[in-house]
Amino acid sequence: MSRRDIAFIISTLIAAAALAVVPTITTKESVINLLVLVYIYVMMASSWNIIGGIAGQVNLGHAAFFGLGSLVSRILWTKGWPLSISLILGALVPVAFALLIGAPSFKLRGVYFAIGTLAMAQILFITTRNLFPMISSLPTEALSTYSLAPRYYMALGMTLLTVLVVFWLSRSRWGLGMVAVREETSAAESLGVSALQHKLLALCLSALFAGLAGGVFAYYSAGYYLFFPFFPTWTFDAVMATYIGGTGTVIGPIIGAVFYVLVKEILALRFVELHPFIFGTLFILVVLFLPGGMIQIWSRLRRLLVRKSTLAPSAAKEEQVPETNMVHDRPAVE
């Protein structure tokens, strides 16, 4: 592990520890609720990033994994199964589903995977809306003992897990193979990388953590329509947060999700129905002018500074800008 890697892990753990203290210093439920929403979005963006950003396969059906995860977890848990088993199954069912759709659709090239996943998610959305049109509410005795704190810690813990796994992946041999597949599939194969295996693993990991996010949502929510997590907006929010932050990187989706949720909350308060339009515009601007996302601002600034310092005669020492493993300036959608 490089020094930068260790620094990332330590700062992540420090951030998590700091966030863990929040419920002890504030009693404002709105703050806790907002943070839980941020965590769910970080999980959604980070998990979308595995297949969409690192492996470069545009998945427009992420809501299906989130929805399946929440559906399975919620039904099992409200039927009296232990919470842990409900959550684990809620994460595994989307993985099975990912294998089912991934194996045939990765035989297709180009835009078909994107269209296929979008269609699949819409089919699931309509099916669950027909099968489960009712609101799932917690039983009254559970509602009376409902407490935010365990939900908060559950969401924080799962988010930490997601981020650390994505970080590990990005530094692993598998992650390198996924990036190679994204960059130039046939060249990757000519070097011994199985494109199909890498795409499938990326999709399964992506589904796993989206399913887990669904489980967190199911555990957190007091009552909701069971088909609500299947809404396509869950997909597009995850995609937009990832792109705004910086696709293909570990930190990008985290920054993007935090930014996205906060701005969305502010905009939703002020403009109510107008905020999807504003985000759509922002998304287009980012893809056009900042394809590396918000973290690209940072690397551009650094390059500028280094160039200045090497131009200045006094600063003779040459400093190379280290490039992060996954940063790429090209959008995955072409």
């Binding site: 193979g177 990036v179 070097l191 011994g192 990388v193 090209r330």
Partner: peptide, 28 residues
């Protein structure tokens, strides 16, 4: 069996070292 391409097919958005690493971490 390994090859190069007449029309090059490098992994553009990663470093030269990471390009070579792909061969070294997969391959024969």
């Amino acid at each position: 069996i390994a090859r190069t391409f007449q029309l090059t097919k490098p992994f553009l958005n990663i470093t030269a070292l990471e390009n070579v690493l792909v061969g070294r971490m997969y391959g024969r």
